[in-house]
């Protein structure tokens, strides 16, 4: 495979000069996200997220399997994010690149380890049968900030997805098809979104660090440090990943968490608005409320 092309000296100098004048190449403010677009597929649990030129397709599927023997009451939830040469020819199939490893690790930390999906609700018969929920993240086009976009994609898809309804009688489980019973949504406990910050220090004057949000590919290639904060809209930090790079002031970093909270609130509002629009589109003749076999949650 060819090696990824690094930005040329000219590009780099232009970028640095612009940054000194408080400008980004695409004219955005330092803390501004690119235009976010969220589309849903024909099937349930299929989303297509566009963040500028970054485009991520997420597909959720469910099947019945046996739970792990050491966790008999938990269902399975796996996220796969394999980058294909479609993303860019520099990714080789079946050989994970650093980008791919980081993406899957961060998604794993933010969504799985924070307990966004209630895996206990996926249990059908303890130790014997459970649902296995699988999220396939397909990166179609890579223009930076894959983690944030993938996180939005997976969470929106999980909220959009409906698993087939089941009933349990003693030891036997009946899985109803879509024609027999209206499928039920997944039980999601909270929605942690990721916000990635990129840091540039040596490019500007001494002792000052410039922080950018939602970096494009060029900005990602030129950055000297980055931190990903996984946070939900209630301000609960689920994970912070700062893997090397320039050292940061602790107080400044707390400021980043505050910025992340503001951004996550915006993203949450956007995703729920799009989900509502989609639900209205799917609600044929306003019968969805009656068709639903789901019990109202007591909270």
């Amino acid at each position: 495979m060819p090696r990824e092309v690094e930005p040329s000296l000219n590009e780099k100098q232009f970028f640095v000069k612009a940054l000194e004048e408080n400008l980004r190449i695409d004219g955005r403010a330092f803390d501004q996200y690119r235009e976010l677009d969220l589309e849903f597929g024909d099937e349930l649990g299929v989303t297509d997220v566009r963040l500028g030129k970054t485009r991520i397709h997420t597909h959720i599927t469910a099947e019945v399997t046996t739970p792990f023997p050491d966790r008999p009451f938990d269902g399975l939830f796996t996220i796969t994010s394999e980058l294909s040469p479609m993303t860019s020819p520099f990714f080789e199939p079946n050989r994970p690149s650093t980008t791919e490893i980081l993406l899957s690790r961060l998604l794993e930390k933010t969504l799985r380890r924070s307990g966004a999906l209630d895996t206990e609700s996926l249990c059908l018969i303890a130790g014997q049968k459970c649902w296995s929920i699988r999220a396939d993240v397909h990166v179609l086009s890579h223009d930076g900030n894959l983690v944030d976009a993938a996180c939005i994609g997976v969470l929106a898809a999980l909220q959009h997805f409906r698993k087939p309804d089941t009933s349990t009688e003693g030891e036997s489980v009946t899985v109803y098809t879509l024609a027999e019973r209206e499928p039920v949504p997944l039980s999601l406990l909270h929605f942690p979104y990721c916000v990635t910050f990129s840091y540039y220090s040596s490019t500007v004057e001494e002792g000052e660090t410039v922080t950018l949000l939602d970096a494009t590919l060029l900005e990602e290639q030129l950055r000297e440090g980055s931190a990903t904060i996984g946070i939900n809209r209630h301000g609960e930090v689920c994970q912070i990943a700062k893997l090397g790079g320039v050292p940061l002031d602790a107080v400044a970093f707390l400021g980043c968490v505050q910025i992340a909270l503001v951004k996550v609130k915006e993203i949450s509002v956007f995703v729920s608005k799009r989900l509502e629009e989609e639900a209205k589109k799917r609600d044929k003749g306003g019968l969805m409320a009656e068709l639903s076999a789901e019990n109202d949650r007591v909270s």
């Binding site: 597929g41 099937e43 299929v46 397709h57 294909s84 899985v175 098809t177 879509l178 024609a179």
Partner: peptide
Amino acid sequence: QITNTPEDKVAGS
């Protein structure tokens, strides 16, 4: 990249 296959309402996926 296959993104959509026809869904079968009667049978499972």
